[in-house]
């Protein structure tokens, strides 16, 4: 690389400016444009291509053409002329530590699997009580993958279909894992009422989204879904997934290291530290005034 081999101290080698790339580009353009205009244009383009190619080659062969630029530098310790607005409180380290603890990815996966299993109980109860078939709910879910199944008869959906079972397991498993991962990521953000937020609010919100969207996405499937049973199955997922996720211990994130030693050692709480920082900042502001 050119910057590794300056010829003299303080000298930098840069590629010599050249018009040959432009000439070659023009030549190629004219060569093709001649197909639409006149053979003479193509001949001119061909000639320019030849000139451009030769000129370019001569720029880089046998040695790449360079020009030297002499620079003068000085090692200094400058000061930023930036001022921090006094109204903005900052800690000594100027860092926000978010988040300091979180769940491992496996926690979300386990939660998703457990929630996914729990969800099948209300779904199967619905299937057995309403259609007297174990397979109805499974096939109804599979209809998301087989578009024409959405208009199939109830009798058809109540029968066993291997394709339906495989598709339902794939769809249900994939979505359960994704939502489980989401729970693992989001639960640390709602530490106060995990049962309310993860077990009830999140499933209700998800049901609301599904209720409003499914009518547009697949009106036929929408007609077959029993929302009275859908809600308990969502809540079952939320409660079990949230419970399993919360059973696991949180792990410290890289942010934890930036906390003061007293907090890391468990002598002071994080909140106390932040209040302390806030008061420090306040003192600082007052001293400024």
């Amino acid at each position: 690389m050119q910057q590794d081999h300056p010829i003299k101290k303080g000298e930098i080698l840069l590629p010599t400016p050249t018009a040959w790339p432009m000439v070659l580009a023009l030549g190629l353009s004219l060569l093709l444009a001649g197909m639409l205009t006149s053979p003479i244009i193509s001949i001119l383009g061909g000639a320019l291509c030849l000139m451009g190619t030769v000129g370019w080659f001569r720029q880089v062969l046998p040695h790449e053409a360079h020009e030297a630029v002499l620079t003068r530098t000085e090692e200094v310790i400058p000061y930023t002329n930036r001022t921090l607005a006094a109204k903005i409180p900052t800690s000594d380290t100027r860092r926000k530590n978010l988040p300091v603890e979180t769940f491992q990815i496996m926690t979300g996966i386990k939660g998703g699997i457990a929630g996914g299993i729990a969800m099948t109980i209300p779904a199967e109860l619905f299937s057995l009580l309403k259609y007297h078939s174990f397979w109805y709910a499974i096939n109804l879910l599979a209809a998301g993958g087989f578009v024409h199944w959405a208009s199939a008869s109830n009798a058809f959906l109540s029968e066993f279909h291997l394709r339906g079972l495989l598709a339902a397991v794939a769809i249900h498993g994939f979505i359960s894992l994704l939502v489980g991962l989401l729970y693992g990521a989001m639960l640390p953000m709602y530490p106060k009422y995990p049962i309310l937020t993860a077990g009830i609010m999140a499933p209700l919100l998800f049901t609301g989204i599904m209720y409003s969207a499914l009518g547009i996405v697949s009106p036929i499937l929408n007609q077959r879904i029993d929302w009275f049973w859908f809600v308990p199955s969502q809540i079952a997922f939320g409660l079990v997934c949230g419970f399993v996720v919360n059973l696991h211990a949180k792990v410290r994130t890289p942010q934890f290291r930036s906390l003061p030693f007293a907090v890391r050692a468990g002598i002071h709480s994080d909140i106390g530290t932040r209040e302390h920082e806030g008061s420090q900042s306040k003192d600082h502001q007052e001293s400024q005034q």
Binding site: V69, T71, E75, V76, A86
Partner: peptide, 15 residues
Amino acid sequence: MATQTPITEVVDLTA
């Protein structure tokens, strides 16, 4: 002015 943090840098004096 709340802070003025020194930074080490190479300054280019080339005209």
